[in-house]
Design a protein around this nucleic acid. Structure first.
Length: 657
RNA sequence: GCCCCGAUAGCUCAAUUGGAUAGAGCAACGGCCUUCUAAGCCGUAGGUUCCAGGUUCGAGUCCUGGUCGGGGUGCCA
């Protein structure tokens, strides 16, 4: 049983005589920040007092007087303007912990009304290697899916991969023109990926060539306009005018932006021109951009040969993705990519037109929204469909196939307008009771505060990121093992396995522990600092518990079966015990707005409480056998909660480290 | 032009959505390994929560205006 729901239940009764709809008030019960205000506090009396026109302190006293917490909390205390402070009784804590010992769920109740959730996350393009940008969607989505499942809901995970777009036209073109047969035979994905990059560069080169002159012209135009603005301002004596200054500032910013863009473009062009091989290829394929589009539309139109190539390329690409997911410990119930919806696009557009939801405009078809000048286009002038079309078809399919109560889209915040539109369109289509949520997250930045890229301007590959994290973890594991008081205790293969677990955990955790809204500055050093609020800190706490059991030759199963009495005689023991009972609360907070960082902060606090306990309370050498048993139980519950909690985040523990 | 988001300790970030004295971790300083893993613990220092108003018992959080930054914005995804 969790504390908060129990408090809510009891306050609901006490509030009944004064308030019909107590739910908003019950939401104002929370953990106390300062121990001198008890363990929990109810903060509703002030709000309710205002609503009823009554003195909040008096009201608080009245409700507190009616509150029945016998056997659960110490008598409530009213403080300040009307806070009701509560301290949970130690014997109640002990009872709850004793019940949790024999409970797989550690005393966390399953949802009273289970719902069906579809979680859409990760969604890489299969033709290009996964990069750093995919780590956030993947780890957040996976963590939410696992947590929802634990909370008792039905969860359908679906990886909406990009397996039908222009990138396949690029690979097909590359395969036809530049393929190294031997390399392809040995490592198809490696060769396809090389072809993708090559074609990408050639296209960028030609596109860049044609963009160069207009861009330079635009820059010149901006600059001369700026000079004019200065002159005008001076002539009219408005140099100090706020609006004028602001306009000039903006103009300057546009210029800086254009200048930078031009610089990057020139560098890119130069890189190709200085490479004899590349510049030769570029000269031989002047219309490559056009041709690639041609390959793509032939694929979409059902061209036999291109379909055959697509069917040939897809399995090895999927296998490569699968290997990465396996390493990350992520699995999906379904992988229904863009290609799956291919035949459903035309019908849905026609239906939407017929229903008056979409209409034609300038030859294209779009859905228009009030107060917004640009519509969401679902068919281009040339008849091709857009990603909004696919998303609508996908939404419909999911509703029909799985009857969900909610669909979560774990996607970059830059697509928020798209999802706003998509959801509005869905409501017009009649999906009104369905919860549609864009679980958005910020950009992964480098330490310079700009989007995380390699020196060449490409996104950093995910595999190399994992390798680096693991290599760094390996070093730390080895140093630590060598420094153990009793000498090193890990074999090389154990060290390697631990480094893999610790490194990947650090990477995922660094991401999950952040409020997902904010941009995220990626830093190996901070992530693998391995102290503070990191996965390693919790894995370490777990390993220390396991070490006690190993040293003492304690059989955890037998310990649990014996149900020894629990004593909470020191603050460290009581703090730890209370924290253990808060696990369910943390899961609730995590799911309330789909924020895994709520769960990470709980686990950090729990591990913190344990470390304090570990310093202050000898376990194996406790004063009495009874105390030893009691502390062993606290240790065991801590280890199980950490393991379970990290498990909900998709992170493994290690027995030794 | 219009729309959305953000600004919190030197740095990276929290703050349970309006609650009591704004918290962590890095970095800095001081203490703790003959006792279960020091990847740890205990302590010190560090703040005009971007600015100016407003709402109320109470504001980092809500409202108005501004500054700075990011993103988006009919034929990419």
């Amino acid at each position: 049983m969790s504390i908060l729901p129990e408090l809510e239940r009891r306050f609901r009764r006490a509030l009944a005589p004064v308030e019909e709809d107590p739910d908003p008030l019950l939401a104002m019960i929370r953990r106390s920040q300062d121990p001198k205000f008890g363990d929990y506090q109810a903060n509703f009396a002030m709000a309710l007092g205002k609503k009823l026109g009554r003195d909040p302190r008096q009201l608080a006293a009245e409700v507190a007087g009616r509150l029945s917490v016998d056997g659960f909390c110490q008598p409530p205390e009213v403080a300040g303007p009307g806070f009701i402070n509560l301290r949970v009784r130690d014997d109640w804590i002990v009872d709850q912990l004793t019940a949790a010992i024999g409970d797989e769920r550690l005393g966390v109740p399953a949802a009273a009304e289970p719902k069906t959730y579809v979680v859409d996350f990760s969604a890489p393009n299969v033709a290009k290697p996964m990069h750093v940008g995919h780590i956030r969607s993947t780890s957040i989505g996976d963590a939410l899916a696992r947590t929802l499942r634990f909370a008792g809901h039905r969860v359908v995970t679906d990886n909406h991969i990009g397996d039908w777009g222009t990138q396949f036209g690029m690979i097909i073109y590359g395969y036809r023109n530049f393929c190294d047969g031997e390399a392809y035979g040995q490592n198809p994905v490696g060769e396809l990926s090389r072809l993708y990059q090559l074609v990408r560069r050639l296209i960028d080169y030609h596109a860049g060539k044609t963009r160069l002159a207009p861009l330079a012209e635009k820059l010149a135009g901006l600059e001369s306009r700026l000079a004019e603005m200065h002159a005008e301002a001076a002539a009219e004596g408005k140099t100090g005018d706020k609006r004028v200054k602001k306009a000039i500032h903006r103009q300057q910013k546009d210029i800086d932006e254009a200048r930078e863009e031009l610089g990057e473009l020139r560098a890119k062009l130069e890189a190709v021109e200085q490479d004899p091989e590349l510049s030769k290829l570029a000269a031989e394929h002047p219309r490559i951009g056009q041709s690639v589009l041609g390959e793509t539309s032939r694929l979409h139109a059902g061209d036999e040969e291109n379909r055959r190539l697509w069917r040939e390329f897809l399995p090895p690409c999927l296998a490569a993705l699968g290997a990465t997911y396996k390493r990350l410990g992520v699995a999906f119930d379904h992988t229904l990519g863009e290609s799956f919806y291919h035949q459903r696009l035309r019908p849905i557009v026609e239906e939407l037109i017929a229903a008056g939801i979409a209409r034609e405009s300038d030859g294209a078809v779009g859905i228009f929204f009030e107060g917004q000048d640009a519509p969401m286009l679902i068919r281009k002038k040339d008849g091709a469909f857009l990603y909004a079309t696919t998303d609508l078809a996908t939404l419909r399919y999911r509703v029909e196939a799985w009857q969900p109560d909610a669909i979560l889209y774990v996607v970059d915040f830059r697509q928020s307008l798209h999802f706003e539109n998509l959801f509005a369109a869905a409501r017009r289509m009649g999906y009104e009771r369905l919860e549609l949520k864009h679980v958005s997250f910020g950009t992964v930045l480098g330490e310079d505060g700009r989007p995380f890229k390699t020196r060449e301007g490409d996104a950093v590959g995910l595999e190399s990121l994992l390798d680096e994290a693991v290599a760094r973890a390996r070093k730390i594991v080895e140093e630590n093992d060598d420094a153990k008081p009793g000498g090193a205790e890990l074999s090389p293969s154990q060290r390697a396995r631990i480094a893999e677990t610790v490194g990947i955990a650090a990477l995922k955790y660094a991401d999950l522990s952040q409020n997902r809204d904010s941009d995220y500055v990626f830093s190996y050093d901070k992530m693998l600092a391995m102290n503070g609020n990191t996965a390693t800190y919790m894995q370490y706490a777990y390993a220390r518990v396991r070490s006690i059991f190993a040293k003492g030759g304690v059989d955890a199963e037998a310990l649990r079966a014996s149900r020894p009495p629990i004593f909470l005689n020191t603050p460290a023991e009581r703090d730890l015990a209370l924290e253990l009972l808060r696990f369910g609360e943390a899961v609730d907070y995590c799911l309330k707005d789909y924020r895994p960082n709520q769960l990470t902060s709980y686990l950090f606090e729990l591990a913190n409480c344990y470390s304090t306990f570990f310093e202050n309370c000898p376990v194996l050498k406790a004063e009495t056998p009874e105390l030893r048993q009691s502390r062993l139980v606290l240790c065991d519950l801590t280890a199980r909660t950490i393991q379970k909690g990290l498990g909900l985040l998709g992170i493994d523990v290690v027995e030794k480290m």
